[in-house]
Structures are given as C-alpha cells and as structure tokens.
Deep mutational scan, measured.
Amino acid sequence: GSLMYASIFGNVSAIIQRLYSGTARYHTQMLRVREFIRFHQIPNPLRQRLEEYFQHAWSYTNGIDMNAVLKGFPECLQADICLHLNRSLLQHCKPFRGATKGCLRALAMKFKTTHAPPGDTLVHAGDLLTALYFISRGSIEILRGDVVVAILGKNDIFGEPLNLYARPGKSNGDVRALTYCDLHKIHRDDLLEVLDMYPEFSDHFWSSLEITFNLRDTNMIPGSPGSTELEGGFSRQRKRKLSFRRRTDKDTEQPGEVSALGPGRAGAGPSSRGRPGGPWGESPSSGPSSPESSEDEGPGRSSSPLRLVPFSSPRPPGEPPGGEPLMEDCEKSSDTCNPLSGAFSGVSNIFSFWGDSRGRQYQELPRCPAPTPSLLNIPLSSPGRRPRGDVESRLDALQRQLNRLETRLSADMATVLQLLQRQMTLVPPAYSAVTTPGPGPTSTSPLLPVSPLPTLTLDSLSQVSQFMACEELPPGAPELPQEGPTRRLSLPGQLGALTSQPLHRHGSDPGS
C-alpha cells in the first residue's frame, strides 16, 4: 500500500510541476520586462504597450523563439521550412505564380514574418522605404497627419515599386495596425538579389506586381527641396563636378596662354591676372594647382613670374625650331616645348642647366612650328573623362623618358669634360720664339709635331656638333674642335714665318 501511495504521489506532483513550468517561465520573463521598464524609466503609455505586446506574443508563440529554433537546422532544411511557412503567400499572390521551385525557395529564405499588435506603428512618415510588405492577416491604416487616407487588409501590398527607383524613397505617411496583424516583408536588397539570379522571372514579377498603396513621397523628385535634403551631399558634389568641367572646357578654348597655377587659371584673360583667384576666387580649394602655386600668395601677385606667355621676339635665322618633346602628345598638341628640351639645344645650356634650372624654367623657349593648343594648358582630366590607368601609364612613360634624357646628358657632359682635359694635357705650358741651342744640326726643328685630335665617332658628340652648327654659343662658352686643319689655341699665330727665318745662335768662333 505504501508503494502504491508513493507512486501516485510522485506522478501527481510531476504533472503539477509540468503544468506550472510554463507559468514560471512566463513570470520570469515578465519580471525581466518590468525590470527593464523600471531601469530605463519608460513612461506609462509606452510601458503599457510593452506589457501588452509581451503578453500577446507569449500567448501567440508560447514563449518560443522561432528564429532561434529555425537557425538550429541546416540551410537546406531551413529553405523547406521557410517554404512551408510562406506557402499561403507564395501560392495566392499573383506576382509569385509561375516561378520555379528554386526561385520560390530563394524568396522564402528572404521573407521575414512580423507580428504587430493593435496601435503599433510599422512605418513612420519620413522613414526610408527599405522593404516591401505583404499583409497575411489583420488590417492596417495609413495616416497623413491625423487623416486616415487608406485601410488595407489581407493580401494587400504596400511599399514602393523598387524597379522604378535606384534609391529608396521616404514614406509619405504613417502605417498603423488596427488589429493583430501578420506581415511578410522582404528587404529591398534581398528581393533585387533574387531577381538578379532569376532574370526570366524578374520581368514577370515586375509586370504582375500591383502595389495597393504606394508609400513613396511624390514630392521626392529631382530638383525638389525634399530631394535635395535626401541627396544633399551627392547633389552638391555633382554640381561641383559639372562646374569644374564647364570651366576646364572654357580653358581649352584659349591656347595662347600657358599658366603654371593649374587648370583653373589657364583660361583667365590678361585683365584677371591681378585678381586673387581668377574664376576660382569664390572657392580657392575647388581646383588643383601645381607646386608653384604656393608662391602666388606673396605680395606682387600681378607681377609674379609664374604666369607664362609666349615671347614675341624673333628667332635667329640659324636657330632650330626646338628640341624633341618629352611626351608623344607634344608633337601634336603643344605650341611651347618643355623646359628640359631647351637644355639640349647647345653645349652652353648643358654647362648651365643644373646651376640655374629654376631660373631657366621661365626663360624664352623655342617654339614648335605648329600653332596647336598648349601642352601645359590642357586641363586636368576628371576620373569620369580619362581612366586612372591611362594617366598612370603616361606618367610612367614620361618618367622613363626623363631617365633616358638624364643618362644621355650625363654621358655627353662626361665626354666633353674628358676631351677638354685631354686638350689641356697635350698642350705645353708655354712657348717662346727663341729656342735653346741643340747639340747638333738636327735641332733646327722649332717644335715637335703635334698629332691632331682623333675624329669623334660617338653619337652623342655628333649631336653636340649638330647643335653647335645651329645654335649661337654665348661669349663665355668653350669652343669644341671642328672639322678641318686643327691648330692649338695656345700656339702663336705666325708659326709659318718662324720656319722661314734663320735661327740666331749665340757662340764663340775658336779662330777669332
């Protein structure tokens, strides 16, 4: 009898404990919600809404976190579960008819179910419309201010047509639940991603989709105040780019002037030289400038040598048109050559190039014969006009050509200096018209024969001689050997007369 009593008592207590286990969990969670309300000092109306929603959600799901349970299964099984949970929507909604099984599984994985109690606001006026909503159960109302403009029910759709707008718009009203509602919502990016994977279904979906109420604000059109608020930074940046392009296009129409201050000032006329910023005076940081632009901040801005204009002085008759350009485009679109090309026009420029290279940067340069637009006047290309890779490749080509020119210049200078040193070592320090008596009659020769300089066969020296023939050397430049009979510069000019005159010897006659 005691054994029977113990078994009955144990079973009854276990049954009672299981009955009250759900209630215990409910009270535990309710205590957490109330502690949250007390800690954050939530006001009474919002506090009442929180408690009511918790009670309804507990009775609806029995305190089970559906998302946590669903995430515990593998992905393939999750797709089947989501397809079952959203079967009513996918079967009865017209846009989803005719979709393949794979497309429906992908869509079912992207849908999220939302449960809303009465009085809950789903979308506020001015919120971004980031999702498309399908009503599965219940009814909602749409308000503009305090005026109800629409009441939607089961199988209705609200949001915005995503295929017509590249960016999400703003809501033009509040969406509030009238009863307990079940909503299926899919985010904008998720829907577009699935439709991109199934393009054959995309056309059918957009053609058959009928949005019951379009929440997009109709005033959000390009150029409206609301649109400016939504895309303020983007609009200002776009206007700045367009104004920069218009100014650079105007600059290219004036090829007669070359400016070292950047493309923003290349198009300024002579009357605007004294102004601080020219056409860019209202925004000094709008356009890029070269490193020399920092010198323009000092006094005497109108007389600054940074602004270059072609000189009108005539060229000498024998002067060549100019050196070879550094870039391939210089032959086609440049009416002034790079300062480095002028360094190779003569030997005198070679000796004085490194010492006063900055001073020569603004000297007169030889002109190319074609009066085409200036290379320095070409505006900086924006990322939309020329690819970045093209600019980098041009810079690399320019750097390689500069290296080759520097190597060639160093070799030419070394060769010229070597020839000058050899000339100085071969010439005796001094010569006299009267020579010392020699031991015999073989001493009648006034000077030792001097062998002429070897013929220069280097390509670089031939180019130097060509430049010497075309360029007029300055007075202080050293002379180079030329073709024809060679003669030492330090010898007297009348050596031929010395050989014809008898030598005057000093000596005593033994017979006297």
Rank of each mutant, 00 (worst) to 15 (best):
G126L: 03
I135A: 01
S136E: 10
G138K: 01
G138E: 01
I140V: 10
E141C: 07
R144D: 10
G145I: 01
G145Y: 06
D146M: 03
A150F: 01
A150L: 02
L152K: 01
D156T: 03
I157D: 02
F158I: 09
F158T: 01
F158D: 01
G159I: 01
Y165E: 12
A166P: 11
A166R: 10
A166G: 12
K170I: 11
V175F: 02
V175P: 02
I186P: 01
I186F: 01
H187E: 11
L192D: 03
E193V: 06
V194I: 06
L195R: 02
D196L: 09
D203Q: 05
S207Y: 06
M220P: 10
I221W: 13
P225L: 10
P225M: 12
S227Y: 11
S227P: 09
T228M: 07
L230T: 12
R236S: 08
K239C: 10
R240D: 13
K241C: 10
L242F: 10
L242G: 11
F244W: 12
R245D: 15
R245E: 08
R246N: 10
R247Q: 12
T248S: 12
K250W: 14
K250Y: 12
D251C: 06
E257P: 11
E257K: 07
G262T: 10
P263N: 15
A266Y: 09
A268I: 08
G269M: 11
G269E: 12
S271C: 05
S271D: 04
R273F: 06
S289L: 04
E295D: 05
E297Q: 09
R301G: 11
R307A: 06
R307E: 10
S313L: 09
S313T: 07
S313A: 11
P317G: 15
G323D: 09
E331L: 12
C337S: 09
F344W: 05
F344M: 12
G346L: 05
V347Q: 13
G355R: 11
R358P: 09
R358W: 04
Q361S: 12
Y362E: 08
Q363P: 09
Q363M: 15
P369M: 07
T372I: 09
I378P: 01
I378S: 14
I378G: 04
P383F: 10
R388G: 13
L398R: 02
Q399E: 04
R400A: 06
Q401P: 13
Q401W: 05
L402I: 11
N403T: 11
E406R: 04
L409N: 06
S410D: 03
D412H: 08
A414Q: 07
T415K: 04
T415N: 13
V416R: 03
Q421R: 08
V427S: 08
Y431C: 14
T435H: 12
T436M: 11
P446R: 09
P449Q: 06
P449W: 01
P454Q: 10
L458Q: 11
S460M: 08
Q466N: 05
C470P: 08
P474Y: 14
P475G: 10
P475A: 10
G476R: 13
G476L: 12
G493P: 12
L495A: 08
T499Y: 12
S500D: 15
Q501Y: 10
Q501H: 05
H506A: 11
G507V: 09
P510D: 04
